[in-house]
Design a protein around this nucleic acid. Structure first.
Length: 817
RNA sequence: GCCCGGGUGGCGAAAUAGGUAGACGCAAGGGACUUAAAAUCCCUCGGGAAUAACCUCCCGUGCCGGUUCGACUCCGGCCCCGGGCACCA
């Protein structure tokens, strides 16, 4: 062997140095070129890259590099979603400042990204815990406040009575605090909300524009927003000035209402509880329920009679008002009307507590329905009230709307399941909410000239509560309006706020006088966004909301932030998500040391299509490494392939033409797979090309084949492709080469193979000239000797010909039937 | 509980618009090379029937049913696994 064998670590660091020296991935705006903004969701800097990261960022890098080789001006930035809960936990556990811990993690992960060969423009790196970043978030919040998109209201949280702190849903285990093991309590506190519901209609309608998104993500968001047309109905409370407002999409069932249900925390319930011990006990029980809806949905449905009655808006009938543990105060008005005859949940509740079931709708087909067994929930024929007898459900809804609206009892209303976005967190490690509480002026935004409100970082946590309240130098300030002594808001933003606009800031990363500038309009919207399916709703909906808000503030021109979305699946080992507790972690670091970045990238791309979960396999990695060894050895054996070697393919030998046709068919498949983002079969295709070339002698074909395989592999294994491209004399930098094109002449063939079916079962095949007519093919096929024993004694009913693919002979037996 | 996905050989997977099921790779088995091993190369590889060997035939894409000349692909019902459910990110 005269050539050196494949040594990944040497060539990878050499190539990485080359990219750095050439500033290969530094991006500038160029209006004359087609831009392509490729972005992978930025990581939380947890400390170490895990396989999920490797997969995520490799996918983004493959797309960015592919688009670049197609000739586009590609931006691929990276940054850090640096605020969040884990830093606080680490700070408490290891007695380090959250800022120090975070910074160390970022430094380590940055190095790992570089070692993986990611084509990032590092000049644009962002960390959300940097005041230069979050000052613009605070500024944006103040603009939203000015626009009336921010308000404060009381809202319920998980309260740990021992640690005296608010817990995230994931910190509540079986109803108890993860650290203290105390039974958690629901606690109402005042919090800031963003009016995302003002944008509900647009967020819903614009989903139709997102043709580059997976349909399931659009469907999930559509259901999450949950637009429903219905009516608000007023129920007067007996012997009281109070009125309960409920929303229902089934006004046609109004006459069937037999009771109302209110949240345990409803003001009416609290009023009753003063002198009703049983109601008070029930309230206390409900106060231990978790905030998480998944918990709420699975608990046993319980209730208690409040002693109060509401009056039916039509009949004036007295309807008992019940407290129910499944009615949420934060959602709608905290009260619902119950129609046990026509709603299954109401039915089960009514059965349990022996409440009246009053049917007012019958099946349209006139069949009997046993209302003692279950609710009839479909639309049907209405039997009450008298004004609606004989009407369909649809007609009855309209009738009752027109009939009851003048008296103010009913109002047509569009309701959204989407709730406003609560952004207050009672935590330390986050962006300070730029508000000041003045004893005279109330909540006042910080003056813009005083931004940023800087989060103190030289802090060692000693207890699980946020330290901000105990820091006078942070807390005490003066009111921007009346200049009286005042206190800062000590809550910080939900970290989803940072991730809702970072994609735009990458464009204006070094702009110190504004949040965004013209460059943001050059680069956005993001052409390709890559991230986990777990972000399908919350992150992606909040970012869409922020994009529209930024547009309405004149900061951006487009309507949507992400044109195309790729949601990648998880990395599993032994069928389960990799986690420390399961002990099934595979560390990318040791693999990269053993095989190099290219092998790891190759395996992770090859092992599964991007969207499905990926089962880890150590021997599969070794196989990927073997392929790169083979490629390396083979290429260096062909080192003296002349660049000038060409051939008259039109008049070449038929066998050689057939091989070239095969090569271009594979290239066609590869190009198609790049476009549809099925990169695992791109790798299969490259393997097929190498298998083909290894059996080939003709230099012209080798020269063409090697130039194709190196270029189609370059986005996936960029280091080895770079070195081999140079060594074989194709050029100095494969990044500058053009993407390989399929030659249409190479694909032509004068014969085609057709599969023959009889009654849909495969029975043989036949080669015919490509220009054969359908009639001729049908004639020839039935004479095929191999088929005669199938055809004997049967009549041919018809012959179906699918051009260039298949021919199906359908046999008789039709005469008898 | 509600919403959204997924299920194909021993394993990861492929099948581009309803038209050859299992490409490509891993593992396994056999062979070549070697004193030996590793590496490399060659062959076999869904299950079954039949055969000296071919030809050939049957079954097979989670389960049950349907549409179609033809279904991994479309429709209905079910089972199992995963993601999300608003304070993990």
């Amino acid at each position: 062997m005269s050539h050196p064998s494949y040594d990944a670590s040497t060539i990878e660091s050499k190539v990485q140095q080359y990219w750095q020296k050439e500033q290969s991935f530094k991006t500038t705006e160029d209006p004359t070129r087609e831009k392509f903004y490729c972005l992978t969701m930025f990581p939380y800097p947890s400390g170490q890259l895990h396989m999920g990261h490797v997969r995520n960022y490799t996918l983004g890098d493959v797309i960015a590099r592919y688009q670049r080789m197609l000739g586009k001006n590609v931006l691929q930035p990276i940054g850090w979603d640096a605020f969040g809960l884990p830093a606080e936990n680490a700070a408490l556990k290891h007695q380090v400042a959250a800022s120090t811990w975070t910074k160390q993690n970022i430094d380590h992960m940055r190095l790992q990204f570089e070692q993986l060969g990611m084509a990032y423009d590092w000049d644009r790196e962002i960390a959300t815990c940097d005041p230069e970043y979050y000052r613009w978030e605070q500024w944006l919040f103040i603009q939203l406040f000015k626009r009336g998109l921010v308000y404060k209201k009381k809202s319920v949280v998980n309260w740990d009575p021992v640690d005296q702190t608010v817990l995230a849903n994931e910190q509540v285990i079986d109803g108890r605090g993860w650290r203290s093991d105390a039974l958690i309590e629901r606690k109402e506190i005042a919090q800031w909300f963003l009016k995302i519901t003002d944008y509900a209609e647009e967020l819903l309608c614009d989903l139709d524009k997102l043709s580059g998104w997976p349909q399931e993500v659009r469907t999930m968001q559509q259901h999450w927003i949950g637009r429903s047309e219905g009516a608000e109905i007023q129920f007067k409370v007996e012997n009281s000035t109070e009125t309960l407002t409920v929303f229902s999409t089934r006004l046609d069932t109004l006459a069937g209402v037999t009771y109302l249900a209110i949240a345990a925390a409803h003001p009416l319930a609290t009023a009753v509880a003063k002198d009703n011990a049983a109601v008070k006990t029930f309230q206390k029980e409900c106060a231990h329920l978790q905030v998480a809806e998944a918990q709420l949905a699975t608990i046993e449905k319980k209730g208690i009679f409040s002693g109060l009655y509401a009056l039916h808006p039509i009949s004036g009938e007295r309807l008992p008002i019940w407290l129910a543990n499944f009615v949420i105060m934060d959602y709608g008005s905290g009260a619902v009307m119950s129609v046990p005859a026509h709603d299954q949940r109401d039915f089960e509740f009514a059965q349990k507590y022996d409440l009246t079931i009053h049917p007012v709708i019958q099946p349209k087909d006139g069949s009997d329905w046993d209302f003692k067994k279950q609710a009839f929930t479909a639309y049907g024929m209405v039997t009450a009230p008298s004004s609606c007898v004989g009407l369909s459900s649809e007609q009855a809804i309209n009738q009752l709307l027109t009939e009851l609206n003048p008296a103010g009892k009913v109002l047509a209303k569009i309701h959204y399941r989407l709730r406003d976005w609560g952004i207050s967190r009672q935590r330390y490690w986050g962006t300070p909410i730029p508000m000041i509480n003045c004893p005279h002026c109330g909540s006042v935004p910080v003056a813009e000239k005083d931004l940023p409100v800087i989060l103190p970082t030289n802090i060692t946590l000693t207890k699980p509560q946020s330290p901000l309240k105990d820091l006078p130098e942070f807390l005490n300030t003066t009111c921007p309006q009346c200049h009286a002594p005042a206190q800062r808001e000590t809550d910080t933003f939900d970290t989803f706020v940072e991730s809702s606009w970072y994609y735009a800031r990458y464009a204006s990363y070094n702009q110190h006088n504004a949040m965004l500038d013209d460059r943001a309009n050059y680069w956005t919207p993001v052409d390709q966004y890559v991230g986990g399916i777990e972000h399908a709703i919350l992150h992606l909906l909040y970012a869409r909301f922020f994009h529209k808000v930024m547009r309405d503030l004149g900061l951006l021109h487009s309507d949507e932030p992400f044109t195309r979305l790729l949601t990648q699946g998880m990395v599993l080992k032994d069928g389960a998500k990799m986690s420390k507790s399961k002990g099934n972690i595979v560390d990318p670091k040791t693999l990269m040391e053993k095989y190099g970045a290219d092998t790891v990238r190759l395996f992770i791309i090859f092992a599964a299509p991007p969207v499905t979960s990926l089962e880890w396999s150590d021997s599969g990695v070794a196989g990927s490494n073997r392929f790169l060894y083979r490629l390396w050895d083979y290429c260096l054996q062909q080192k003296n392939i002349s660049n000038e070697k060409t051939i008259d393919w039109q008049n070449a030998d038929k066998v050689l033409q057939g091989k070239r046709r095969e090569l271009h068919l594979i290239l066609q498949q590869i190009n198609h797979d790049y476009e549809r983002q099925q990169f695992n079969t791109v790798v299969s295709g490259a393997m097929k090309i190498l298998n083909l070339l290894e059996k080939e002698k003709e230099v012209a074909l080798l020269h063409e084949g090697l130039s194709i395989i190196l270029r189609v592999l370059a986005p996936i294994v960029p280091h080895i492709a770079h070195v081999l491209w140079q060594n074989l004399g194709y050029g100095n930098d494969i990044l500058q080469s053009s993407w390989p094109k399929v030659s249409p002449e190479a694909l032509t063939s004068d014969e085609m193979e057709l599969m023959i079916q009889i009654n849909g079962k495969l029975r043989g095949n036949i080669n015919v000239p490509s220009d054969s007519t359908e009639a001729h093919i049908k004639e020839v096929v039935v004479k095929q000797p191999g088929l005669q024993h199938h055809l004997k004694g049967q009549s041919i009913k018809k012959i179906i010909y699918i051009p260039r693919r298949i021919i199906n002979i359908v046999l008789g037996a039709s005469d008898e039937t």
